[in-house]
Write a protein that binds this DNA or RNA. Sequence first.
DNA 1: GAAATCATTTGCCATTTGGCAAATAGCAAA
DNA 2: TTTGCTATTTGCCAAATGGCAAATGATTTC
Lengths: 189, 189
Amino acid sequence: MKEFIKYVLQFGNLNQQQIDLIKSKAFELELHKDDYFSEAGKVSRQIGFIVEGVTRVCYYNNKGDEITKYFIDENNLVVDIESFDNEICSSAYVQALTDCKFICFNKKDWQELLNTIIGWDTIVHKIISKALIQKIERRSPLVTVDATERYLKFLEIYPNIANRVPLSYIASYLGITHSSLSRIRKNIH
Amino acid sequence: MKEFIKYVLQFGNLNQQQIDLIKSKAFELELHKDDYFSEAGKVSRQIGFIVEGVTRVCYYNNKGDEITKYFIDENNLVVDIESFDNEICSSAYVQALTDCKFICFNKKDWQELLNTIIGWDTIVHKIISKALIQKIERRSPLVTVDATERYLKFLEIYPNIANRVPLSYIASYLGITHSSLSRIRKNIH
DNA sequence: GAAATCATTTGCCATTTGGCAAATAGCAAA
DNA sequence: TTTGCTATTTGCCAAATGGCAAATGATTTC
């Protein structure tokens, strides 16, 4: 919980009373490896902060291949924002890739906080915007470089993830086959 | 100006007085083909709405190649949001690819509107979030498909742009060479 | 511990894409 | 119209990557 409050306070100020109110609405969630935090086809009504573990967002393309869209690890928010905000079905799965611990809020409580705490909405908007921009800045450069450079960029962006998740997920994140990624790994020894 | 107000009202309600206030702060901006709306290395203090024309966001990678990151055309907001919000230097250029007309606000007036008009901040946040999500949803799928599919996706996403901008910009957007794109175009006749 | 399952590496070959250069087309200024 | 500049197309070949299958390695289950 400490981590979450520290994270939030980077984006704006809150007094102790406000912090306590936020804490009172939070609950802990633990997921095992391979469990889903939220699922495609369902409306996501939870927002989570990863205290421990690695997750990914993935979907199935029109050929049925499973595509990893991005990874999310410790000290980041996890939410399918389109589904959460607009009460529409998710188009992707959010899956734990290791055993995970989250600080979690359900939508009703989250909205109550937004209505109650002055300035909370601004903080939330900043957090969400920053996360969205980060997603773009991480994903976009991959389009224009070759497979080896993609992997090197991946290592830069996610230095703590490469050893914690299966090669095939990284390959699908990078848009290359697992065989190719295996060879690339060998080449950069 | 009509178009801009119509666009804004999709995201929330405003009364006539509020609309008039917004209008009073807006100014028209015209750019010629190849002019810059904002430039890398400078702080961007303008936010614009494209009434007519096509723009692109581009940058130079570490090899010095010019990369088109995305295209933006009519009825969309144009702003380097990181630079605008945080007063930091832009990392990219926003360039007119055709002669363009914008409805424009400078930062000072924009912030005054945010402070004055109840609910304007919510509308703005919705607009920005939607635009950021759209950018991710457009760019991310390109990573995982081959060159031909990338071009087909481009045609889907930007049906009105393919004929209005040079092939080489589209190629750099898709992360393929202009020669390859030329061949791809021939193959899908 | 053995068997079964899943992940990763490797080999072989086909296909795609890139790099380079030349040819052609399109456009704009004089 | 001519000239010059830039964009696009095309050819040729090399390099990168994919598809498939087999081998190896790692992990889980009984």
